[in-house]
Amino acid sequence: MSKQFFIVVILWIVLTAAGEALVIALTPFLLPSRAALEGQIVDDAFRTLMMLAVPVLAFVVAMLIYSVLRFRRRGEPTQDGPAMRSHGPFIAGWMLVSTALTIVMIVHPGITGMNALRAQAGKDVDLVVQVEGSRWNWKITYPQHKVISRTELVLPVDGHIRFEVSSTDVLHAFWIPSFRMKIDAVPGMMTTIYATPSKTGSFSSDHKIRLQCAEACGILHDKMMVPVRVLEQKEFETWLSQQVKVD
């Protein structure tokens, strides 16, 4: 290894260490409050990808910084650089590392994350909630309890919930930011998504606990939102019992 490349390697190690420290320190600020078990899988994947990205970023940045500082000429260069068109070990190393990294990313957090989400979705469902979008509001039905709500989405904490999402007019999307879960509402078909609220809370204290339309649907797209309230199981049952039953 040439001395110059050795310096880049040192620079790379320093930048990587600093970067990883930054990721660990900043993740709590970067990733917003989380209110569902599924969100954990998403956040873990997010953190893993950041940790994997840091050395890649650091290497390119180290090479760039070193090359610019070391090889720049003030004024017009009077000579050419060496006629180096290729460098076997460097190219081989690069191809190997980039391929290996890609495979790692695909397997973890990609496929492992997908499997974790599927395993989580496959658990027994405690509650079914039908969510129907129309411009520009959401109709929320609890078919097991014959309850309909149009002004808020109320959920029990720790219950495993299947959301059955549909649309009566154009595309919409069901998104609860603090659950990290999203699925489109497509006219003519039903889509499903699962979530297990992991703590109580409500929109009034955190805007991310909201059911937001996330697919452009016209003038009031941004306003197509209902607050979410996650209650203790008992409180949830009380809430259900206070609602008007429909058939």
């Binding site: 760039l64 090359s67 610019v68 090889f71 000429r73 017009e76 260069p77 650089g81 180096m84």
Partner: peptide, 8 residues
């Protein structure tokens, strides 16, 4: 860029 004569 490596070992080049960079003209910025």
């Amino acid at each position: 860029m490596w070992l080049g004569r960079l003209w910025l």
